[in-house]
């Protein structure tokens, strides 16, 4: 299961569709877009939506790291994208299970002032994006948002959110988040957004 070469993913048209949703979501932080269900079979713990994002953006020119480190994820993504695994501090893409507390997040590359675009992209799996019953309520402010916007996320470990806030303290340095659940709901939080976590009441 999940270690095979995916032949069902259309590199040309499916990745274009995913990309346009991704671009829309990145340009409008907090906006939830929904990816069309993909008929792929990723390994245990890796959601099809995050795998779809990886298929869309990763190739042999890029590096990635998985957190927590799953051998099967690495093998599956290497095989299907040609991307290479790298240390967490160097990888351009970090595939994350956001429900697990991950102290390693603090070493993620956030670029430098000459090349802030070298800051990593985080692809984060959570239990739910939007909807009720979520345990994280965030308020976002910044470019792409008229005024401010509220966002609810289910299952995101609060420690990870704090680490991202720490990483993004010094704009333009920072990391950009793509957050998705296993129903295909996707939301992006670029480093330009100021995140305020509301206390759960």
């Amino acid at each position: 299961m999940g270690t095979n070469l995916e032949s069902n993913f259309d590199q040309v048209f499916t990745s274009q569709q995913i990309y346009r949703l991704l671009l829309d979501a990145m340009a409008r932080p907090g906006k939830i877009v929904t990816l069309a269900r993909l008929e792929i079979d990723p390994p245990e713990g890796l959601s099809w939506s995050i795998a779809g994002l990886a298929f869309t953006l990763l190739d042999q020119e890029t590096t990635f790291a998985a957190l927590p480190d799953h051998e099967s994820w690495g093998h599956y993504l290497c095989l299907n994208t040609g991307s290479r695994q790298a240390a967490v501090s160097e990888a351009e893409f970090i595939i994350i299970d956001g429900r697990v507390d991950l102290p390693e997040l603090l070493v993620v590359n956030r670029g430098d002032l000459l090349f802030p675009d070298r800051g990593a992209t985080l692809m984060v799996m959570v239990s739910s994006v939007g909807g009720d019953g979520a345990d994280n309520r965030l308020t976002l402010q910044g470019p792409g948002i008229p005024g401010q916007v509220s966002l609810t996320l289910g299952g995101l470990c609060p420690g990870n959110l704090e680490r991202v806030q720490t990483l993004n303290r010094e704009f333009p340095l920072g990391v950009d988040l793509m957050i998705s659940d296993n129903r295909g709901a996707l939301v992006c939080i670029p480093r330009s957004s100021a995140i305020t976590a509301e206390v759960n009441g």
Binding site: S15, E61, P116, D117, T121
Partner: peptide, 21 residues
């Protein structure tokens, strides 16, 4: 080709995330 598109797509996302850079 798809590799070239992917590179542009990745760069576009960074451009949007860092407005004006």
């Amino acid at each position: 080709d798809e590799n070239t598109k992917r590179e542009i797509r990745r760069k576009l996302l960074k451009a949007v995330a860092i407005p004006g850079y």
